[in-house]
């Protein structure tokens, strides 16, 4: 996995709650057998009209957000199916951080495994972020995972929480399986007693 590095970007305000993984990546694109190339299908049914043209009213298609790597979304982002194609599509499109008031469990896990940082904030702070970007499309955030801070170009600084182990894995780009295999002996012993 690639290491997570600090960066600056304006956030894309996706003003929808309960965004499910069927919206993030519709099922007709789950048939590929690779992990890459899903970005073009991200939010497909919202991004494109039936004739294949872009829907200019959808926030990702607005020119001011084209190069954003932070997604703001309302509560319960990533609910529904366990498809890892959802974070694959978000990452491939260019999103590195998603900020919401809550995430569905499986999506939350899947994000960390793909170098995406999901940040949970409270309702008031999320509303503030939406207001800042809606008031001024030049609004930008600096994300620093090591310090666990969001600094913005209005000179605000906000702290966020992240599980220490997951933070380490993201910062160092650790391979989960390699980490587990460090405990191979313990697994062997457990299994020997357990499967007898």
């Amino acid at each position: 996995m690639e290491k997570f590095i600090n960066f600056r970007s304006k956030p894309t305000p996706l003003n929808s709650a309960n965004v499910d993984t069927d919206q993030i990546i519709p099922k007709q694109f789950l048939k590929r057998i690779e992990r890459t190339g899903f970005g073009q299908f991200l939010f497909f049914d919202w991004r494109f009209h039936d004739d294949g043209s872009e829907n200019p009213d959808f926030v990702l298609n607005m020119p001011e957000y084209k190069n954003s790597s932070i997604l703001l979304a309302q509560d319960n982002f990533g609910c529904g199916s366990s498809r890892e194609h959802a974070p694959w599509a978000l990452r491939d499109y260019g999103f590195k951080v998603i900020i919401s008031t809550s995430f569905a469990d499986i999506f939350y896990n899947n994000s960390f495994k793909n170098g995406i940082l999901p940040i949970v904030v409270d309702n008031d702070l999320l509303s503030k972020f939406f207001k800042f970007i809606n008031d001024d499309s030049n609004y930008e955030m600096d994300i620093n995972l090591n310090d666990q801070t969001i600094k913005d170009n209005l000179n605000n600084e906000f702290k966020f929480d992240v599980d220490a182990f997951r933070k380490k894995c993201l910062l160092e780009g650790l391979d989960d399986i390699a980490l587990t295999l460090e405990h191979k002996k313990k697994i062997d012993i457990f299994e020997k007693n357990y499967l007898k």
């Binding site: 992990r35 366990s82 498809r83 890892e84 974070p87 499986i106 896990n109 899947n110 495994k113 793909n114 989960d176 399986i177 587990t180 295999l181 697994i187 299994e191």
Partner: peptide, 15 residues
């Protein structure tokens, strides 16, 4: 339910 990275993890480690 688990994601595909976890499927790979369980295949490799049964954990």
């Amino acid at each position: 339910g688990i994601g595909t990275s976890e499927v790979e993890h369980v295949l490799a480690t049964q954990c």
